[in-house]
């Protein structure tokens, strides 16, 4: 019995070590895709999982998504061999971590090779209890202005997209309604979505930040009043949900322009990755974008399958980072608003 197992193992090993003659970099290779989240129920994993399936198809490689968390994913991209066999799929947190000071300058975008954009999630949002006396965050501003003794507690996580959503709203509130109204807003330290929901149910927060899809069930009709939520501000348009209050549509602006912020999921590769690797990824992503199955898979999860090839993706993400950098330089330190 041992012998059979042993021979089988040796055979498999030999098969795997035999190089496959091919011009393509990825053909027949084993690829490791790391993501900056450890949760397999979040948008990072869901996007990476869908993209992984289509990349396998178009790159003809075998690949695996490893949810190792932001810290480990960044470290992996800094140290992995630049042969394209290890890359990261992650959202705006990649540069936000540096902008918020959680990560040092060695993690700057400049120290990575930017690959194509593989998808977007427009659903970052704020939700409040269903019976809250305002229907969206614009009304919330009016509601605060009407009575200076009113306060509202927003629960967000530090140093993440939710922090950004808070800061954008705060700066807009201050510029439009004045500093007093902005200061009626209190910051509550939140954690995972579960923690924030618990804060809301315990009445330790009034408005919580999260992802559109993770709040969806609580906003449906027929949910216990104690649990029921409503969306009060969503950072970008979710396809098929034109009824939701979007930041830009409510008149929330940044630099005078209405805000529409989606999380952009890009492929990030180690510094020094050769151009032909990136070109092959571009090619596969272009095919993926044209695949109607990919588009419907993404749409089913309320994500967008609008991709960008590496060159545009790089320009795009650098531009996005610079505008947010500017915003953060004007914004107060969130820790002072506690």
């Amino acid at each position: 019995m041992f012998n059979k197992k042993f021979i089988a193992s040796v055979l498999v090993l030999v098969l795997c070590l035999t190089p496959v003659a091919s011009a393509a970099v990825y053909d027949g290779q084993r690829v490791r895709i790391v993501i900056g989240s450890t949760a397999v129920s979040g948008d990072s994993y869901m996007v990476a999982d869908i993209v992984n399936r289509y990349l396998q198809k178009y790159l003809k490689c075998s690949s695996k998504v490893d949810p190792i968390g932001a810290n480990e994913a960044f470290a992996t991209i800094r140290t992995a061999a630049p042969d394209g066999m290890t890359f990261m799929i992650f959202h705006d947190m990649t540069y936000l971590g540096v902008l918020f000071g959680s990560y040092g300058p060695e993690y700057d975008l400049e120290n990575m090779v930017i690959g194509p954009r593989v998808g977007q999630n427009p659903g970052s949002c704020f939700a409040a209890k269903k019976n809250a006396p305002y229907k969206d965050m614009k009304e919330l501003a009016e509601w605060l202005k009407a009575d200076p003794s009113r306060t509202v507690r927003l629960s967000v996580e530090l140093g993440s997209v939710s922090n950004l959503g808070f800061v954008i709203y705060y700066v807009w509130l201050k510029n439009t309604y004045g500093e007093e109204v902005a200061n009626q807003m209190r910051f509550v330290l939140g954690g995972s979505t579960d923690t924030k929901l618990q804060q809301l149910w315990d009445n330790n927060a009034d408005v919580i930040f999260g992802d559109y899809s993770s709040f969806l069930q609580y906003t449906a009709d027929g949910v216990d009043e104690q649990l029921a939520l409503k969306y009060v501000g969503i950072l970008d348009k979710v396809p098929g949900r034109e009824d939701l209050p979007v930041y830009g549509d409510m008149g929330i602006t940044l630099d005078g322009k209405p805000v529409y912020f989606s999380k952009d999921f890009l492929i990030y590769l180690p510094k020094g990755t050769p151009d032909e690797v990136v070109a092959e990824l571009d090619e596969a992503v272009a095919k993926m974008q044209a695949d109607p199955d990919f588009q419907s898979d993404m749409a089913k999860m309320t994500y967008s399958g609008k991709t960008l090839l590496s060159k545009e993706a790089k320009e795009f993400i650098y531009g996005k980072r610079d505008s947010i950098k500017k915003l953060l330089s004007e914004a107060p330190n969130i820790e002072d608003l506690e």
Binding site: S41, Y45, S213, L216, Q217, D224, M301
Partner: peptide, 15 residues
């Protein structure tokens, strides 16, 4: 939860 989401099903109070 990931398994439910991959199949497009939301788990929550109405599940």
């Amino acid at each position: 939860i990931g398994a439910f989401l991959l199949q497009g099903i939301q788990v929550g109070p109405l599940f």
